[in-house]
Structures are given as C-alpha cells and as structure tokens.
Write a protein that binds this DNA or RNA. Structure first.
Lengths: 273, 273
DNA sequence: CTAATATATCTTGTATATCAGTTATATTAT
DNA sequence: ATAATATAACTGATATACAAGATATATTAG
C-alpha cells in the first residue's frame, strides 16, 4: 500500500525536474461524451452516504421507530451523523417519493402519516400481483425449487418455535421472493414490496396475534403443496386466501391514533374485490 | 404590488430610527419541533426547479427524444437552463430510481438502456392490476360514469379520425385512469403507469401499425359495454384481451437496436401467464 | 509507426454558503 | 391581562466550492 504512492511520487518528481511540458497550450478534452472506460460496466460500486442515510431512515420509519408526524431536520441529522446536509437531503427526497416523509418547503419535514386510502388498495394490488406470480411459479417450478420452498417453510417453523418474530418476518419475505423468482417474475415481488410499505407500517401498530405465525406457516405450506401438484387454480386460491388474512379492520387503530393517519377517504367508500 | 413594499419599508425605517431593541440578549427559538403554522396544510405549493427539470427530462426520455445511451451532463444542463447543478442533480436522482437514467460515479450519467427483462413483466403486472381494476369498476359503476367512459371513447374516435396520435394517446390514458377512478382503485393505475414506463419507451421505437388506434377504440368499447351490463367476467376478459394486444414480438427491435437494451435475460426464459 | 504511460481535465459526490419563506416569541398597544 | 404586531431565528431550496475518482490525450519509449 505504500509502494505505489512512493513510486508515483518518484515519477512525478522525476517528470517535473525535467521541464518537458513547460509553457504549452492547455490540454483540451472532449466533454459530455460517452466514456468507454470500465467503470460504466462495473456493477454498482460503493454505497454512497446518501444510500446509507436512506437505509437508516427507511428502516426507522417502516418499523415505526419514528412515528408519523415526527419532525426530521436536515441540519440536525447532518450534525448527528457528522456529515453535510447534502446526502441527508438526497435520502429525504427519496423517502418523499415513497410517501414515507412529508416535506413542507421553508417550514419543516416530517415522517409521513399513513394515507388511509392506500391501505385497502395496497392489499388488493399485492393480491393481484402475487396471485399472478404464484400461477407462473406453479407452471415453472422444478422439483428442486419445490424443495427449496419447503426448506424456507421449515425455517419459518423454527423461527416461530423460538419466538423470533423478526427472523420469521424475514423468512416470510424470502418465501414470497422465492415464489416470484421461481415464477420468473421477480419484478412483481419488488412492486408488491413497494406497495405494501404503508401496510407494513400499519401492522407495526398492532399487536401480533396469538398463533398468527403458525397460521402463516400452514398457509404457505398449502401454497407449496398446490405448486408441487402443479394445481394452478388451487395455488392461486391458496395465495388469495393467505393474503386475505391480512385484511384487519383497521378502523379501531385509526381511531386510537388519528394523528398517525391521513384521513383521505371515507371508510365506506373503498373498493371490494 | 408596490404599496406593500413601500409600507414595509416605511415600517422598517420607522422601527430602526427608534432604538427600541438595542443591545439585548439574542432571541432563542425551539428547534426541530412540529410547526403549527398553516403552510403544512396548504396542499403542495409551487413546483420547484427540481420538479420542472424532472418533468422535462422524464418526458424527453419516455418519448425517446433522448435515446438510451445519450450522455447527460449535470453541468451542461445547468448552463443551458441557467440554474445551478443542484436541482438538475435532484431530478436525475429521481429518474435514476425509475430506471430511466444510469449514473456512474465520477464518470458520467446516461439515459438508461431498456432492461429487456422488464418488458414482459411489465405487461403481466399491468394486466394483473388492470383486470382487478376493471372488475371493481364493473361493480361500482353508475350510469353517469358509464356515459363518461363512452364520451372518452368518442373522443378517441375523433382523435383517430384526425390522425392526432398524441391526442389519442392522452385520451387512452384518460380512459384507463377513469376506469380506475370508477373502481375506486386510482392507486392501481398509478402503479400500472409506473410499471409500463419502459414499455412506453419501447413502443416509441416501433412504427404505429395501420388500424391500431381503431382497434383500441373497439376494445375499449367492448370493455365499457361489459361494464354497462354489469358483466364482471366479460369486462375482465375484454380488458385481458385489450392488454394482450400489446405483446409485440420485440425480438426484431432488440436486434436492430441492440445498444438500446440491457440484455439481462434469455428470450426463451420469460414467464408465460 | 505503435504501444505504454503520465497527467490535465473531465465526471459525479460531498461540503458550505446564500436565498427566500415560515413561525415562534418579545414587544407593543389596548 | 390580552390581542396585535414586528422580527429574529428557524426551515428547506438553490447556488457555489471543493474533493476524489475516471478517462482521454499528449508525450515518451520501443
């Protein structure tokens, strides 16, 4: 690690000591052209400060560590993190686009309230996407892939037995991701993830129901069973059943924490499909 | 417009001429607290420079005015537009998140190539979302709403007769937006719009087929007819048919413009649902 | 003439400074 | 005391400056 520097220094000194490029016209270089270098093809390099701050805030907001309405100050975060406002700002802009923060110019930035109207729509959208996904997965699945799914379900069972809620949640996400992967529709799972953000926030408000995790495991097992048999319609039906289980009546929580929500819809005025 | 300034000036001068707050302890104010002012509740105010630049670039990229690979220079755009790099940069960051530009640190920024893998998935996702949407719309639609849909179809017919492709496209988007609105699932249409971005770019590569617009009008009419009859299954089937019409074989265009695409998938390895 | 190399100039990422609009508080007027 | 008002200190939006890495080109070596 020391040698290159020394070598470079040496070369540089050597060059300057011999006045070869003294007093010449400044070198010009074409600008705004597509570079042919290698960097362009190196799959995305290091995480920027923006990325780091985005991940931090995203996690805190979705997990409800930062509840809706919490003020966010570019300046204060910059001081806390020992960096400048710019990367913080860029992270906040990303979160704004995901409706996770609300920015009011010249006034303040706040953790976004949950738009009530988004919740039923998110459930419906996710269902539409994942039913399509599991249909494709049923057509594509190989025996080894079915075994992988069963392994994931077993992991969930273990997490449940240990009472590891966090680990269970991760395994649950992995399961849905793998179904999408098998169905050759990973983009649909990305979409579903994006769409269920506000629902995830909401669910962090509610207490985990007794036996919920065990039920999820059973539902997943039923889905895999249908996939294994190649029974497309059954797989779709089981997935639909699985995702319908998420439809809590959130009216209660909206009433106990009204300040967490944007009351942008009448509870009677939601789609039923 | 002149009076307030004068008045303000007058007041200010009057105050300073009388030394009332001379040499006092600096006023302190609590920071990082939620403001109770009105700005927070004023629905988003003026478009920022970032927004303007975003719209400009977004339009140019989706319409293929800027083809994939085109270099984008923060500095040059800033000079052209007579503003600083900051708003440009923020706009570009948004576009990066939508996969419309590719940024390579310290090297360059380019209009993104179209990821081939995204195209079939986008069509599938859109279909899933819009079938769900039209199902809900069929359940919800009032007679007046059906008439509105028919009015929109008529507008498309007119645009077709005049050969106004651009206007036709806008009316087409309005039609799908209205179906979603009627079905009380506007968020699903927003999702569909987001997801079909790359497909829209691709379609700008292809020549408009003879009679395509007329066919679209017919398909729309069939959908509305089913909605009017309250025939849910028929409405879904017609929508599915309508959106299946978009599945061009893009292999040809991928071959003639390989530099426009990210070849991230084998053409045989795509989901079929 | 050809290939290797060094480096000036390009790029985006980050830091800092300024601008303009908002809001809490000290002051004033009643 | 209470309400109105002026204004200091806050906010995010924009501009500018600097840092660090990538690349094209002039130079050099063969």
């Amino acid at each position: 690690m020391l040698n290159p520097v020394l070598k470079l220094n040496g070369n540089w000194l050597m060059k300057t000591s011999s006045p070869k490029r003294a007093a010449q016209a400044p070198r010009k270089r074409a600008q705004n052209t597509a570079p042919s270098g290698v960097a362009r093809f190196n799959g995305n390099s290091a995480a920027t400060l923006s990325d780091i701050q985005y991940d931090r805030l995203h996690e805190a907001i979705v997990s409800m560590d930062m509840v809706p309405g919490t003020p966010i100050s570019e300046k204060n975060i910059a001081l806390e993190q020992g960096i400048s406002r710019t990367p913080i700002r860029e992270a906040i802009l990303r979160l704004t686009r995901e409706n996770l923060v609300e920015v009011v110019a010249k006034s303040g930035t706040f953790v976004a309230r949950i738009p009530i109207s988004a919740l039923p729509e998110a459930l419906i959208a996710r269902r539409a996407l994942e039913v399509m996904t599991v249909r494709s997965a049923t057509r594509c699945a190989t025996r080894s892939q079915v075994l992988q799914l069963q392994a994931l379900i077993e992991r969930q069972r273990e997490m449940n037995e240990r009472g590891n809620t966090k680990g269970f949640h991760l395994a649950d996400e992995d399961f849905h991701a793998m179904v999408a992967s098998i169905g050759k529709l990973p983009g649909l799972w990305k979409l579903a993830q994006q769409v269920k953000l506000q629902v995830d926030r909401f669910r962090h408000l509610t207490l985990p129901e007794e036996g919920r995790m065990a039920m999820v495991v059973e539902e997943h097992a039923a889905i895999v069973s249908a996939i294994e048999r190649g029974d497309e319609e059954s797989a779709c039906a089981k997935m639909e059943l699985h995702l319908s289980g998420l439809q809590h009546d959130f009216a209660h929580w909206v009433e106990t924490h009204p300040e967490y929500f944007i009351h942008d819809i009448d509870l009677d005025d939601i789609a039923q499909v």
